[in-house]
């Protein structure tokens, strides 16, 4: 049995089809949702966070049905969620804010709760600034406050919507390390449109585009899809689906059939992702 089962889920907002039959399965470890802006990642994560119901399809979280109030409560007791834009109470200190969320997570024993708040703030490296107002913290520190609240009570399912967005390279590195550790023995689902995050963090990856799941597997399997389909050339190849000029002046081409005599190179996860999304774009256009 897997912690997250999403089966052929659809969701429409007015005229916009946000999800059009997305599917996903995730067990312990970090699973990345990769896709361009507007792909439906956030809509899917909101469903995993039990705050949005699908129009059709089936979702099971931690063995429960989020559509049933009693089971939804059970899920929420074992869930940590960091939305894309958390909307912090900026007049609160970091400690006060995490403490506030801890109460909403039913931790009403004051001493035990305060110990737990200190523990999660320590986990994200915010102990020294826990007394500072959130408005005085940097963007990276605020993201860490958000992550801290998501870790309260050692949740079995952690849902993170673009947790590394807006972070500088060093902060992103620290964040990846934290998330990687959190994923040991629990299910972490994170969305991102940065392929480096997936390559560095995720045991499994799902590529979502146009509200559908285009790929579901390991990052290595995703990369394998592009093997033999990436080549360097002095110019943009007419056979390429996508091509861009690199820093060396050569063009990196990705496409179905490389021309004879070109230099094939090892694909990256970004190549594979772009190839997949490009394929889909062509399919949609056709």
């Amino acid at each position: 049995m897997t912690a997250v089962v999403v089966d052929e889920v659809t969701k429409r907002f007015g005229r916009t089809q946000a999800l059009a039959g997305a599917s996903l399965q995730a067990g312990a470890g970090v699973t990345g949702l990769l896709g361009p802006n507007g792909a439906g990642k956030t809509t899917l994560l909101r469903m995993l966070a039990t705050v949005l119901a699908p129009d059709a399809g089936r979702i099971r979280l931690l063995g429960h049905d989020p559509g049933k109030p009693d089971e939804r409560l059970e899920i929420r007791r074992r869930l940590g969620y960091l939305p894309q834009e958390p909307g912090f109470h900026r007049g609160f200190t970091a400690f006060e804010f995490v403490d506030y969320v801890a109460i909403l997570k039913e931790m009403t024993d004051r001493h035990a709760r305060h110990d737990e708040v200190r523990r999660v703030l320590d986990m994200v490296g915010l102990t020294t600034v826990s007394g500072k107002k959130i408005r005085a913290l940097s963007g990276g520190m605020r993201r860490r406050v958000g992550l801290a609240q998501a870790l309260l009570g050692e949740p079995d399912l952690v849902v993170l919507d673009e947790p590394t967005v807006g972070l500088d390279p060093e902060q992103r590195l620290r964040f990846r390390e934290m998330i990687s550790r959190i994923g040991e023995g629990r299910s972490v689902i994170l969305s991102t449109h940065q392929t480096e995050d997936v390559a560095a963090l995720c045991a499994t990856v799902a590529v979502i585009h146009g509200g559908r799941t285009l790929f579901h597997g390991t990052p290595a399997q995703l990369v394998e899809q592009a093997r033999g389909r990436v080549w360097l050339d002095d110019q943009r190849s007419p056979d390429a689906r996508l091509a861009w000029r690199t820093g060396t002046g050569q063009h990196r081409n990705i496409g179905d059939v490389p021309p004879a005599g070109v230099e094939l190179v090892a694909p990256t996860i970004e190549d594979a992702y772009l190839l997949l999304i490009g394929d889909e774009s062509v399919a949609v256009a056709a």
């Binding site: 912690a3 709760r113 550790r181």
Partner: peptide
């Protein structure tokens, strides 16, 4: 930053022991 306590993958579905007293 401190490390996250190790847990087994079975904990995810079984529900780990409560970290803090609730309610």
């Amino acid at each position: 930053m401190s490390s996250v306590p190790a847990r087994t993958s079975d904990d995810v579905l079984a529900g780990a022991p409560e970290a803090v007293a609730r309610r």
